[in-house]
């Protein structure tokens, strides 16, 4: 038997269906690319356009408003909130930062920027923001809770984690869910 006929004898029984499957995949890739491009405006992706219909629908109007009055803290905070709801963490962080330049003691902006930092996994920055919140308003149990959690799971500093979780527990007896969660985290905290 020649090598060619040997190959023919060992031919894959599903050769044609597999080739048809690959042809379908290629067509699907081509169509996906074409459809994606049809939805793109300029160099922005279709994804950004879809987002604009959701939580960030108000962004263009707010940006116009901000251009007219660049120091409008309320507009800056609305923009930051919109970007946060749209999960555009980097822009949300930027606008909370801008709001904090105007009012460095805005607890809400600090707290939200801390959450945005957590979402971006900027853990030391998140901790600093939560600490800034506590410096202004020492009874924010959630800030202690988040600092404790970051120290426990990300920064691996159990001593600091214990300290903050205990403070959160001490401050949150009325918030049953937070208290229960904090208690649980303290129980399984490795010394």
């Amino acid at each position: 038997m020649t090598p060619k006929s040997a190959s023919a004898a060992l031919e894959h029984p599903l050769r044609k269906p597999i080739l048809a499957l690959m042809a379908t995949a290629l067509a699907a890739l081509f169509l996906t690319s074409f459809l994606d491009r049809a939805m793109v405006q300029g160099t922005r992706t279709a994804r950004t356009q879809v987002k604009a219909k959701g939580p960030m629908a108000a962004v263009p109007e707010l940006m116009t408003k901000l251009q007219q009055n660049p120091n409008d803290e309320e507009t800056i905070l609305q923009l930051a909130d919109a970007f946060m709801r749209g999960k555009d963490w980097q822009r949300a962080e930027h606008f909370y930062g801008e709001a904090l330049k105007i009012d460095p003691k805005n607890v809400g902006a600090l707290f939200h920027r801390a959450i945005v930092n957590l979402e971006q996994r900027h853990f030391p920055e998140a901790v600093e923001d939560f600490k800034a919140v506590l410096a202004i308003k020492p009874d924010v149990a959630e800030a202690h809770y988040y600092i404790g959690m970051v120290n426990k799971y990300e920064l691996k500093v159990p001593q600091a984690a214990k300290e903050h979780l205990e403070k959160a527990l001490a401050l949150a007896p009325k918030d049953k869910e937070l208290a229960a969660e904090t208690k649980k985290e303290l129980e399984n905290l490795q010394p």
């Binding site: 080739l19 793109v40 160099t43 992706t45």
Partner: peptide, 23 residues
Amino acid sequence: LFFLTLQGFFLVLLTGPNNPFVT
């Protein structure tokens, strides 16, 4: 057939949702 399809798949991502040339 297999290699170019895989490469094409990556390029679909790079020219669509993961475009590095957004200005």
